[in-house]
Simulated assay, not measured.
Amino acid sequence: MLAAVQAETGGTTFRAVEEWLAAHSAAPSGALIRQRLCGHEGGSWSETVTTALAVLREPDTFDPAWVQAVTAPRDWDTDPAQEDPLDHVRAANRRARPPDHHRPLRRLGAGERPPTVATLQRRTGDVWTGILAAAGGEPNAAKVKNRSRVEVGQYVTRFLAAHPTATTVEYARWAPQHGAPSLTTVIGRFGTWNGAVEACR
């Protein structure tokens, strides 16, 4: 977050931060940033930005050890040595009884913090259905078949009219309230979220 806010090509809006993160292969996704910094504690995006700016402008008002940790230089362009991204999906499916191929990451233990679907897609360069297949799972075909591409597109078009920023986080919140297909279904129909947005715009 700090790196994105102070970068020349970054900014303080969610879209600016999300675009900066997407341009750096070792950085987390915008959805994960929002989930970790806003979601669990009930904070807002503006509060997160305010904190980030305060760390940069007035670091002495925070715990020195924490400031040192979050401001340490990092190479956001080189992926660190890490486990196979598919291991998260495999572990989730092993714990699910019966296997839940539609939402496998939700089956991990409460103490574990797996990457989001968007992060997995970025790390692997594959769509969600391809990731599931590579991890030995199968997508929930029944849910995808319930809605045609045209019908899914109509919902996405309605969503875009109300939310021009078109983030996956906004759609995930909007969909249940409007009886819309899940984000997974949208991706299943269009291949990627960006592909759905471009097609429906």
Results as ranks from 00 to 15, higher is better:
residue 51 T to S: 04
residue 22 A to G: 07
residue 146 N to K: 10
residue 112 E to D: 07
residue 9 T to I: 06
residue 63 D to C: 11
residue 172 A to D: 11
residue 146 N to F: 01
residue 181 P to Y: 12
residue 155 Y to I: 02
residue 199 A to I: 01
residue 139 P to A: 04
residue 55 V to Y: 09
residue 123 R to M: 08
residue 34 R to F: 15
residue 13 T to A: 09
residue 157 T to K: 14
residue 127 V to W: 15
residue 94 R to D: 15
residue 85 P to A: 03
residue 36 R to Y: 06
residue 66 W to A: 15
residue 113 R to W: 13
residue 156 V to E: 11
residue 71 T to S: 13
residue 190 F to M: 05
residue 123 R to G: 00
residue 62 F to E: 07
residue 96 A to F: 02
residue 64 P to Q: 09
residue 177 Q to T: 09
residue 81 A to C: 08
residue 100 D to A: 14
residue 59 P to C: 06
residue 62 F to T: 05
residue 143 K to M: 12
residue 188 G to W: 05
residue 88 H to A: 11
residue 53 L to G: 01
residue 10 G to S: 06
residue 198 E to I: 07
residue 70 V to H: 00
residue 28 P to M: 12
residue 105 L to N: 02
residue 18 E to M: 13
residue 29 S to I: 06
residue 176 P to V: 11
residue 116 T to V: 09
residue 161 A to S: 06
residue 50 T to G: 04
residue 31 A to Q: 13
residue 124 T to D: 06
residue 175 A to C: 03
residue 2 L to F: 03
residue 20 W to Q: 00
residue 179 G to I: 07
residue 192 T to Q: 12
residue 84 D to N: 05
residue 9 T to K: 14
residue 78 T to A: 12
residue 141 A to K: 12
residue 143 K to C: 06
residue 34 R to Q: 15
residue 24 H to Y: 00
residue 160 L to C: 05
residue 180 A to C: 02
residue 39 G to N: 07
residue 61 T to M: 13
residue 128 W to Y: 15
residue 111 G to Q: 08
residue 183 L to D: 08
residue 40 H to G: 00
residue 25 S to Y: 08
residue 128 W to S: 09
residue 118 A to Y: 05
residue 74 R to S: 05
residue 57 R to F: 03
residue 199 A to C: 04
residue 99 P to G: 01
residue 5 V to Q: 07
residue 165 T to G: 00
residue 199 A to K: 09
residue 115 P to D: 01
residue 139 P to G: 05
residue 175 A to Q: 09
residue 52 A to W: 04
residue 136 G to S: 10
residue 200 C to M: 13
residue 153 G to R: 00
residue 48 T to Q: 08
residue 95 R to Q: 13
residue 174 W to T: 02
residue 191 G to T: 04
residue 117 V to F: 08
residue 114 P to E: 00
residue 140 N to F: 11
residue 114 P to C: 03
residue 110 A to V: 00
residue 138 E to N: 12
residue 3 A to W: 14
residue 45 W to P: 00
residue 118 A to E: 15
residue 193 W to Y: 09
residue 15 R to S: 11
residue 114 P to I: 02
residue 131 I to A: 03
residue 177 Q to H: 11
residue 152 V to E: 06
residue 36 R to W: 11
residue 54 A to C: 07
residue 148 S to T: 10
